[in-house]
Lab assay of single mutants.
Amino acid sequence: NNDALSPAIRRLLAEWNLDASAIKGTGVGGRLTREDVEKHLAKA
């Protein structure tokens, strides 16, 4: 759900053309954090 994404995370996902549903969020309530996105990018 994009409503739970911060503007910074939305921008990062758009910049790298990533799908938020493909990344497991570790923040409060399962929210994506910058670290989650960076770890996903490191694996790719």
Rank of each mutant, 00 (worst) to 15 (best):
A4F: 15
R34I: 15
N2P: 11
E38P: 01
D3L: 09
I23Q: 01
D19A: 06
A8L: 09
G25I: 05
P7E: 15
K24S: 10
V37R: 00
A4K: 13
G25P: 09
G29R: 06
P7I: 12
N17D: 15
L12Q: 04
L41Q: 04
G25E: 02
E38I: 15
N1A: 14
V28H: 09
K43A: 13
D3V: 09
A8R: 06
A4H: 14
K39M: 12
L12W: 03
R34T: 11
E35G: 09
A22M: 14
L18K: 05
R11K: 15
D19H: 05
H40E: 07
L5C: 13
V37A: 02
E15T: 04
I23F: 01
E15P: 00
G29D: 13
A14F: 11
S21R: 08
G25F: 00
D19S: 06
K24M: 13
G25D: 03
I23L: 06
R31T: 14
N1M: 12
A8Y: 06
A44S: 14
D36Y: 01
R11P: 01
R10N: 06
A14H: 12
A42W: 06
A22V: 11
L5W: 05
L41P: 02
V37Y: 02
L5K: 02
A14Y: 11
G30K: 04
L18P: 05
V28E: 14
K39N: 13
S6M: 06
S21N: 11
L41Y: 08
L32N: 01
S6W: 07
I23W: 01
A42E: 11
A14M: 13
I23A: 01
G27H: 02
K39T: 10
R10G: 05
R31V: 14
S6Y: 04
L41N: 03
V28Y: 06
A44N: 12
V28I: 13
E38D: 06
E15N: 05
A14D: 15
A4P: 11
S6I: 05
R31H: 08
N1V: 13
R31I: 14
R34Q: 14
R11D: 14
K43W: 07
A14N: 13
L5Y: 07
L12P: 00
D3I: 10
R34H: 10
D19C: 10
I9K: 00
D3K: 10
R11A: 15
R34M: 15
R10Q: 14
S21P: 04
R11V: 08
L13G: 00
E35Y: 08
L5M: 10
G30T: 03
S21D: 11
I9H: 02
G29L: 06
R31D: 07
N2Y: 07
R31W: 06
T26Y: 01
K24Y: 10
I9L: 13
A20W: 07
A42L: 11
L5D: 05
T26N: 04
L13P: 00
A22R: 06
K43Q: 12
G25M: 04
A20H: 05
D3E: 12
L41F: 07
G30V: 03
L41A: 07
D3G: 11
A8Q: 10
E38G: 04
K43S: 12
D36P: 01
T26V: 03
V37P: 00
H40S: 05
S21L: 08
A14R: 08
G29N: 13
G25R: 05
R10V: 12
R31Q: 15
A22E: 15
L13K: 00
N17Y: 07
R11F: 06
A20N: 02
G29P: 03
L13M: 04
R34D: 10
A4L: 14
A4C: 13
G25N: 03
A14T: 09
N1L: 13
L5N: 05
R10T: 09
T33P: 01
E35T: 09
N1K: 12
N17L: 08
E35W: 08
N1T: 12
L41D: 03
E38Y: 15
K39G: 09
A44I: 15
R10P: 01
L13A: 00
A22L: 13
G27Q: 02
D3Y: 00
L32Q: 01
K43F: 09
S6A: 09
N2K: 12
T26A: 03
P7Y: 01
V28S: 09
T33F: 01
G30M: 00
R34F: 15
R34P: 09
I23M: 05
R31G: 08
L5A: 05
D19L: 08
L41V: 10
G29Q: 08
G25L: 03
I9V: 12
K39P: 02
V28Q: 11
K24A: 11
I9W: 04
A4E: 14
R34E: 14
V28F: 09
G30H: 03
K43P: 05
K24E: 14
D36R: 00
S21H: 06
E38L: 15
A4W: 15
N2S: 12
A4Y: 15
L5V: 10
G29S: 07
V37H: 00
L5P: 05
N2E: 13
G30E: 04
D3A: 10
L5H: 06
R11S: 11
P7G: 07
G30I: 03
V37Q: 00
A42G: 09
P7R: 10
T26G: 03
R10A: 13
T26I: 04
R10D: 06
E15F: 08
A14Q: 14
G27P: 02
K43N: 12
T33V: 05
D36N: 01
L41R: 06
N17A: 07
E35P: 05
P7F: 02
E38S: 06
I9G: 01
L12V: 04
D36K: 01
P7K: 11
N1R: 12
L13T: 01
T26K: 02
D3W: 00
N17M: 06
G29V: 03
A22G: 07
L18W: 05
I23E: 01
L32M: 05
G30W: 00
E35F: 07
T33Q: 04
R31A: 14
L12Y: 03
N17V: 04
N2M: 13
A4D: 14
A22S: 13
D36F: 02
G29F: 03
V37K: 00
A8N: 07
N1E: 14
A22I: 11
E15D: 15
G29K: 06
S21K: 10
R10I: 15
I23K: 01
N2G: 10
N2W: 05
A4S: 14
L12T: 02
A20L: 09
K43L: 12
R31L: 12
R11T: 10
G27A: 04
N1I: 13
A14G: 10
A42N: 09
A44M: 15
R31Y: 07
A22T: 12
P7N: 11
L41S: 03
A8W: 04
S6E: 13
D36W: 02
R10Y: 02
A44K: 13
R31N: 10
A8E: 15
I23H: 00
V28C: 12
D19R: 02
G27N: 03
D3H: 11
I23V: 08
A20E: 14
R11N: 12
G27V: 02
A20S: 08
L32V: 12
V28N: 09
A20P: 13
T33R: 06
S21Q: 10
G27S: 04
D19W: 05
G30Y: 00
N1D: 15
T33L: 08
G27T: 02
R31S: 14
A20T: 06
L13C: 13
H40M: 09
L41E: 03
A22N: 11
L12I: 08
L32F: 03
H40R: 03
E35Q: 11
S6Q: 06
P7H: 10
E15A: 05
G27D: 04
G27Y: 00
D19Y: 03
V28R: 09
G29A: 08
T26S: 09
S21F: 06
R11Y: 06
N2T: 13
N17E: 15
V37L: 08
G30N: 05
N17G: 15
D36S: 00
D3Q: 12
L18I: 15
E38R: 08
H40I: 11
L32S: 01
S6V: 05
S6K: 04
P7Q: 13
D36G: 00
N17Q: 12
A20I: 10
A4Q: 14
S21T: 13
L32H: 01
G27I: 03
N1H: 13
A8C: 15
K39L: 13
I9N: 01
A42D: 09
R10W: 02
K39S: 10
I9R: 00
V28W: 05
H40T: 06
L32I: 15
V37M: 03
H40D: 02
A4R: 13
L12R: 02
S21A: 12
E15R: 06
S6N: 07
E35K: 10
L12K: 03
V28T: 10
E15H: 10
N1Y: 05
A4V: 14
L12E: 01
P7A: 14
K24L: 12
D19M: 06
G30Q: 04
N1G: 13
L5E: 07
